[in-house]
């Protein structure tokens, strides 16, 4: 029996649930299992200012450039914004289609998570566009989605962390 191994840590896990782990599930589970955020879709001729306004409002680091059929043709990222500022170009004068990230990647929601893993971990992609079987944009995943997915396997380690506290004392008190 193949059961997803969600809570891997600590005592009490059964043999049934220990059959599969994170490594196996990366190949067995599909991209639809990952956290997928709504994407900002813009046309290639949208200005960088339009994209920036939407990205800021949605607190998202990229806008996905799509054609008339909602097929992904590129992404415009925060890096594109910085490039434009450094080049002295005004955001109103830059079309996102001319300033897209050349290394964007798309995956179908039915493909294995390992494909996203390869893009993010091995190729350093931050965002991966998720599409339907027909290639239409469904949303975004990437570093963040993958991190959340991995953390689900280790709740007993991840959920108990005391973040932002004070460090251990440099010198011990007392004896």
């Amino acid at each position: 029996m193949r059961t997803r191994w969600l809570f891997a840590g600590g005592a009490g896990f059964s043999e049934e649930t220990s059959e599969m782990g994170l490594k196996e599930n990366l190949h067995e589970e599909t991209v639809s299992r990952l956290p997928i955020r709504d994407a900002i879709a813009v046309a290639p001729d949208a200005t960088a200012r339009e994209a920036v306004t939407k990205m800021r409002d949605k607190q998202l680091g990229c806008a996905v450039i799509v054609d008339d059929h909602r097929t992904v043709v590129g992404i415009f990222t925060e890096r594109g914004v910085i490039d434009a500022l450094i080049d002295g170009r005004k955001l109103d004068d830059v079309q996102v289609g001319q300033s897209k990230d050349p290394e964007f990647m798309t995956v179908k929601e039915t493909e294995p998570i390992s494909k996203v893993w390869d893009a993010v971990v091995d190729r350093g992609q931050r965002f991966v566009c998720v599409t339907s079987e027909s290639g239409k944009l469904l949303g975004l995943t990437g570093q963040r989605g993958l991190s959340e997915y991995v953390s689900e396997y280790y709740p007993q380690q991840v959920m108990v962390q005391r973040l932002g506290g004070k460090p251990w004392m440099k010198h011990r008190e007392g004896a």
Binding site: R144, S147, S151, Y154, V158, L163, G164, W168
Partner: peptide, 22 residues
């Protein structure tokens, strides 16, 4: 949000996946 070098590796994953920092 910061972590300290004395924290465990899980704190890094927690800061990113749970607290949502990049």
């Amino acid at each position: 949000l910061v972590v300290y070098e004395t924290d465990k590796a899980a704190a890094g994953l927690s800061a990113i996946a749970v607290a949502g920092y990049r």
